[in-house]
Write a protein that binds this DNA or RNA. Sequence first.
DNA 1: CCATATGTTAAAAG
DNA 2: ACTTTTAACATATG
Length: 278
Amino acid sequence: MPELPEVESARATVEAGALGRRIAAVDDTDTWECRPHAPGDIEHALVGRVLTGAFRRGKSMWCETSDVGGEDGSGPVLGIHLGMSGRIVVTDGEGRSIEGGDWLGGRYGRVADQPDRKPEWDRFTLRFADGGELRLFDKRRLGRVRLDPDLSALGPDAQQVELAEFSARVGRGTAPVKARLLDQSVVAGVGNLLADETLWQARISPRRPAGSLAPDDLAVLHAALRAATEAAITHGGVHTGEVIEHRGAGGHCPRCGAELSRATVGGRTTFWCPEEQR
DNA sequence: CCATATGTTAAAAG
DNA sequence: ACTTTTAACATATG
């Protein structure tokens, strides 16, 4: 699931439910997701501390920490990447999950049950002194947890980048514009589905060389990215995009009815409307 | 067995 | 040297 909107929901969940709770134990024994740390490294860094803030840039999120009663951010930083299938679950002392965010009516601190998940897919766990937990469960195991992550290679956040910088970064090169949108060092946060939705909204072909886009094209693309991102956050995920539900064999454009084209662009399966997207 | 999957990245190619 | 593409990564599912 995770593209920028899902990571933002995860960040909001951590912010709403996990801050200020004393960390009593840590399971960091998955040496793949916690690489290059050895088992116990993250545990020793975090036990006895509390999370003091949850932040995000693109698809990367991180939590600042402190000693109990200490100054916010004085402890190590806990970096989390959800990979292809990772999700965050925060539970209260009774085992009920806590969700935060501006989606589905904008209720903060909502308590809800967590659907289908298997315990063996838990890859990393913080156990709080009150009995609750913060878990990363990740079916495909491509997520990552690490201390003091290096985020210097990330471009500006796709939700916040302004038009001038967006145009300068995206509107150059010979690669297909979709490949540039997917490049996290150009702009951070756009994944395969959000790219397709954005390009569909902007009526721009994913195959257009990025450098061929006129300033007006880039302005439309920028607006479409902002709109698609905001809508996905509000509606609960990138899968709620207008064209996303039509991605698949025999899918048709929900605007004009033309059959969607399918090809690999930027290394990923891509759907677009051959009539409207030029 | 083959293809597919909402991500990242090292290596190869251009 | 810089940009672009491909393959590999670990795992599940149809």
